[in-house]
Design a protein around this nucleic acid. Structure first.
Lengths: 320, 320
DNA sequence: CTGTTAGCGCATTCAA
DNA sequence: TTGAATGCGCTAACAG
């Protein structure tokens, strides 16, 4: 491995000068620049990034925490961040937690160890104060509504969005509305649950515990919901579904069992993934590319705390 | 930032001793160990990983190259690798190329710069010899059949698999078989195409160019295939589809347009993702977790070249 | 069992 | 414009 010193020697200059041309500093004479460049080319020189990192105290690596990578929601988020990162010559360190808190702690520790410059947490498990205590090591960005806190975020106002969706369904004549969700803990879920309960109160509707389906992540979970629906004596007339995948499953399950959508049950979902278009599912579009881009920029800008709200757009199709 | 020297001083020992306890080396007296640990705790010491990397010349970072992250095939691959990596305390650097060769080159360069220890390329664009010329900087693992080459791989024998699938369809009475594929360049695609052509030759079947649908990645592409099918005068009776997503789209499209599956057209797909189960699509299961695990271990073991073949399993459902 | 010392490869004062 | 010298924080060979 030829290093900067070798190049300096070969080019007949000092290491400083080599460093200067590597980093495009001014005040280097033409001749030296070309001498150095020639030597670098001749020896196929490449600087050791780790040495640079150590010396500079920065890595240009951004950690991204997700529970899993194969879920469309997180896949898209990763995609968005990855695109922004690559454009700006940053690298991504993917940290998959499977929703284990220890893994998330590891990510935090990577920040502390200076292995990454900043951390984007797409789905948080750790407590607020834990995360906050790590902020001094680098910027931490969350993907949940943290307007009231000192941690930056790019978020969707799930309370507002859920309320809007519920009102929409109500106006379409639905008074028995249920919803499905993934993780039932977590900030986003709480917001949604609050919106749901407030909605019921506002219209003096009864709270039916079995109208809420938790732990629904995938198509199969959706089919399962459809099967549940069949057995219910007092079925909801509409369902708010927090993922197109699940919605696709519900739709498929309903069709197989003779439940008509939207006549027997209306479905409104989230994400606007290709599957929802193909199956004509009414959905709320989340602009993932934009989300990813904002998350990235917040991560890079570092210092100041900022909160970016993302707007969701209703896409009317045929399931409501 | 307290460093190893501070700790040594506080604990009244040498830096070496501190380094030893950090790395769990033997031959350190109980008392010194606890003295050091106390000091580390007291000052909330954390070693600077970059310094470790520089000193050791290794990063414990594995690069993973994918064209996109949100596609189930790559998502699952990432998932599998990420799980194996986290179990072994390795980190992943995700490099998303969008199928741009320059991005893949960047990944190769990261290897050269020692920013990553090894590289897993899930879908290759660069030429063989280019990749091979980077092998000296660290192990490079491919996700395609490279048995004849000096680069390690975990692969599916797509020639064999495609042949098997085609034979299966033939035995079920299908003599007009088409197929859909994603990228039409690339090693895996060539293998499949070769298998397809040999199959036709073997049974003296005519080659119909319009039985082959390229650039099909997603559900929407599948719907599009279904629409094409409608217009064909001489429709194939069966389709081999290289992704469950596309198959789901085709199935949906066919149903909407009154084409019966499997009576009018049989569908056999790849992956065995949840969507295929839900829609009862006959498919060829790829054990992604296993693939990810093998890729990871090859990446870590480094030195010697190895080739791991992955077996695919036929799952009979209702679309053939 | 323990400590001294010499790197690892580069960036960056500081002085010239 | 240039270069000598110092430091980033840690590991490991070597000596004791």
């Amino acid at each position: 491995m030829t290093n900067i010193r070798d190049i300096a020697k070969m080019a007949g200059v000092s290491v400083t000068t080599v460093s200067r041309v590597i980093n495009n500093h001014p005040y280097v004479s033409e001749e030296k620049v070309s001498a150095v460049k020639a030597a670098m080319k001749k020896f196929n020189y490449h600087r050791n990034i780790n040495a640079v990192h150590l010396s500079r105290g920065k890595t240009h690596l951004i950690g991204v925490v997700v529970p899993f990578s194969n879920h469309p929601y997180f896949g898209l988020l990763i995609e968005g961040i990855a695109n922004a990162a690559l454009d700006h010559n940053y690298k991504l360190a993917l940290i998959q937690t499977n929703y284990e808190e220890t893994k998330e702690m590891e990510a935090l520790r990577m920040l502390e160890d200076k292995q990454i410059d900043s951390l984007i947490i797409c789905s948080r498990i750790c407590a607020w104060d834990v995360i906050e205590s790590y902020r001094k090591y680098g910027s931490i960005i969350l993907c949940e509504d943290s307007r009231n806190d000192k941690i930056s975020s790019t978020y969707i106002d799930h309370y507002k969005t859920f309320t809007m969706a519920l009102d929409y369904l109500y106006e379409k004549g639905h008074h028995q509305i249920g919803y499905t969700i993934g993780r039932q803990t977590g900030a986003n879920s709480s917001q949604r649950d609050a919106a749901y309960k407030d909605f019921l109160t506002r219209y003096a509707l009864r709270y039916e515990p079995n109208y809420i389906f938790t732990s629904r992540f995938d198509v199969e979970d959706g089919v399962n919901v459809a099967e549940h629906l069949l057995d219910m004596k007092n079925r909801p007339t509409a369902l708010l579904v927090t993922s197109d995948q699940v919605a696709a499953g519900i739709l498929t399950g309903c069709r197989e069992n003779g439940l008509d959508v939207p006549d027997d049950i209306a479905i409104m979902s989230f994400d606007n993934q290709p599957i929802s278009k193909v199956m004509h599912i009414t959905t709320l579009e989340i602009p993932f590319v934009e989300v990813g881009k904002k998350l990235f920029h917040q991560a890079v800008n570092g210092q100041e705390v900022s909160h970016e709200e993302i707007q969701v757009r209703l896409i009317e199709r045929k399931t409501v």
